[in-house]
Design a protein around this nucleic acid. Sequence first.
DNA 1: TGTACATCAGTGAACGCGCGTTCACTGATGTAC
DNA 2: TGTACATCAGTGAACGCGCGTTCACTGATGTAC
Lengths: 204, 204
Amino acid sequence: MTDAADVKGKESYHHGDLRAALLVAGEAVLAETGVEGFSLRQVAKRVGVSHSAPAHHFGDTQGLLSALAAEGFRRFLAAMLARQAEAPDDPREQMLAQAVGYLDFAESAPALFRLMFGSDRIWPSTPELAEAGRAAYRNLTDGVARLRGLAPDDPAALPDVVACWSVAHGFAHLVIGRRMEPVQGLSRDEREALLRQAVAKVLD
Amino acid sequence: MTDAADVKGKESYHHGDLRAALLVAGEAVLAETGVEGFSLRQVAKRVGVSHSAPAHHFGDTQGLLSALAAEGFRRFLAAMLARQAEAPDDPREQMLAQAVGYLDFAESAPALFRLMFGSDRIWPSTPELAEAGRAAYRNLTDGVARLRGLAPDDPAALPDVVACWSVAHGFAHLVIGRRMEPVQGLSRDEREALLRQAVAKVLD
DNA sequence: TGTACATCAGTGAACGCGCGTTCACTGATGTAC
DNA sequence: TGTACATCAGTGAACGCGCGTTCACTGATGTAC
């Protein structure tokens, strides 16, 4: 029942896949303490490993947080694609599904979401992180371009891209920050409906 | 030229208005280190006062941060009203001006903005803080109600309120987080124009 | 198949640091008489 | 007007804590011959 029990297979001196285990534990610590209280020592403790072990894999706190953020962007994109996959293959419906996936991710991992979009404790220019973020962004621009009948990189799509992104991001951020009082009391379905309405206003 | 020189009139034992001085210094520390690195000791040092003095006025870090956030909400509202005052007295123009004021504030005090909307290091239920936030929110609902010809507290305004708030908030948050790449390179005027376009999409 | 050796992965003690909190204190101010 | 005293505001030493970083180490693994 100790923290060490969270991770299996540590009878031997070598861990096996400490890097992956640190990422899992790192996300749990992030969720519990927020970015503000995050420390490498807590992560090491949770994995049941010496506190100097993480440095071996990630250098320092920013290194681990950047890796977590990169992983986060990949799951972020996956969450949007999952909603899109079960939505009708219509440009407008695809955009709405994308927004709902945006919210899914933010609600499922609020601390990670804030780390990705609001923290100074990561290096946004890390290649892995930059690429993961770009992939998510490309999904958005592709969706808007398709809806408007433009080429994928036509700058004429920018105003719509910015508007869609802003509304989904603002909604998600206000919800997880519990700063949008009238929405706090609603059910998940009602929140989702409000988000769809808001995005629809932008698209139509 | 020491930090203590930032604040005048401390020849005497008693400071005079330490509470106010701590708020000023607190905001400077917040801007420099972000919420993540914020500490009472740094604030005390900047004012040139013993590190145990702040406790006298604010209890602990959360108390000072909550006071800063409350002050932030009042300035946030003031920033929106300032833009509204110089805009035509037309419901739609007033809403656009409000959004631009939203961005003004976020860009002028990004760390404070994040503290107000995204941090767990404040108590959102502090009376002073809750009231300041509510006042800003009321300005938004009044604007939407006026635009739609509804009573100020008609729940039918909710979808529009949420949509406007989300788009302004998301835009501002993405800009100050430097996470909206295509917008980073633009001038202040171009960013403002993009925001106005985005809000207009919601309103029309 | 067996041995020697290099490399890799994780250990654990030690360090210095900045933090929040506590507490007995002292200087300044205001009030009662 | 003057004195005594209570209250308030800020001091500074001390404490224990968790942190990141360093470093000599040791156990495990893989490879060369």
